[in-house]
Amino acid sequence: MLNIISILIGLLSLVIVIPAQIPFLGWANWFALPFVVAGVVIGQLSSSNSGRNFCLIVLLIAAIRLTLGGGFF
């Protein structure tokens, strides 16, 4: 059950992260990061790893975009 919750949180975060890849919308990644971290924590509590791994991939995408945009753009 925790794995499904983690995947749903990851999908919610992905919906925020995908439009944030557009220039000047990189600030939206800051809104997605708390959701992603919550998904990683919930996924860690699960017996399966797929939800945690999915959230870690979304976190990696958001972190790379924030790094390339200087943290804001």
Rank of each mutant, 00 (worst) to 15 (best):
residue 68 L to V: 15
residue 10 G to Q: 04
residue 15 V to I: 15
residue 51 G to A: 07
residue 48 S to M: 09
residue 14 L to G: 14
residue 54 F to E: 01
residue 46 S to Y: 08
residue 27 W to F: 14
residue 73 F to Q: 03
residue 51 G to D: 07
residue 69 G to V: 15
residue 29 N to S: 07
residue 27 W to Y: 11
residue 59 L to S: 10
residue 69 G to Q: 08
residue 10 G to N: 04
residue 70 G to T: 09
residue 67 T to D: 10
residue 22 I to G: 05
residue 48 S to A: 07
residue 45 L to N: 11
residue 22 I to V: 13
residue 34 P to V: 06
residue 27 W to I: 15
residue 66 L to F: 09
residue 39 G to T: 02
residue 4 I to H: 10
residue 30 W to R: 03
residue 6 S to H: 07
residue 9 I to P: 06
residue 26 G to P: 14
residue 41 V to K: 05
residue 57 I to G: 14
residue 22 I to S: 04
residue 4 I to S: 15
residue 31 F to E: 03
residue 39 G to D: 01
residue 36 V to G: 05
residue 41 V to E: 02
residue 55 C to L: 03
residue 6 S to L: 05
residue 61 I to D: 04
residue 67 T to Q: 11
residue 19 P to S: 00
residue 27 W to V: 11
residue 63 A to L: 15
residue 30 W to H: 09
residue 17 V to N: 04
residue 41 V to H: 02
residue 35 F to I: 13
residue 54 F to V: 07
residue 1 M to T: 13
residue 21 Q to F: 13
residue 66 L to I: 15
residue 32 A to T: 03
residue 15 V to K: 02
residue 41 V to I: 15
residue 67 T to N: 08
residue 72 F to Y: 11
residue 22 I to A: 09
residue 53 N to Y: 03
residue 14 L to R: 02
residue 21 Q to K: 11
residue 64 I to N: 01
residue 45 L to Y: 08
residue 7 I to V: 14
residue 65 R to T: 12
residue 7 I to D: 01
residue 59 L to F: 14
residue 64 I to T: 12
residue 28 A to H: 00
residue 61 I to K: 00
residue 37 V to Q: 01
residue 52 R to F: 06
residue 53 N to W: 07
residue 51 G to N: 09
residue 15 V to E: 02
residue 17 V to S: 06
residue 39 G to W: 04
residue 33 L to R: 08
residue 31 F to S: 01
residue 35 F to N: 01
residue 13 S to V: 04
residue 14 L to M: 13
residue 44 Q to D: 06
residue 32 A to C: 04
residue 8 L to S: 12
residue 69 G to L: 13
residue 2 L to M: 10
residue 41 V to D: 01
residue 49 N to G: 11
residue 7 I to E: 05
residue 24 F to K: 09
residue 50 S to P: 00
residue 62 A to M: 13
residue 7 I to M: 09
residue 63 A to H: 02
residue 30 W to K: 06
residue 54 F to D: 03
residue 72 F to T: 11
residue 19 P to D: 02
residue 1 M to L: 09
residue 64 I to Q: 05
residue 16 I to V: 14
residue 69 G to S: 14
residue 10 G to W: 09
residue 30 W to G: 00
residue 36 V to T: 12
residue 39 G to C: 01
residue 72 F to A: 08
residue 61 I to H: 01
residue 17 V to H: 03
residue 68 L to I: 15
residue 1 M to R: 12
residue 58 V to S: 08
residue 32 A to W: 00
residue 26 G to K: 00
residue 60 L to E: 03
residue 11 L to E: 05
residue 63 A to M: 14
residue 8 L to W: 09
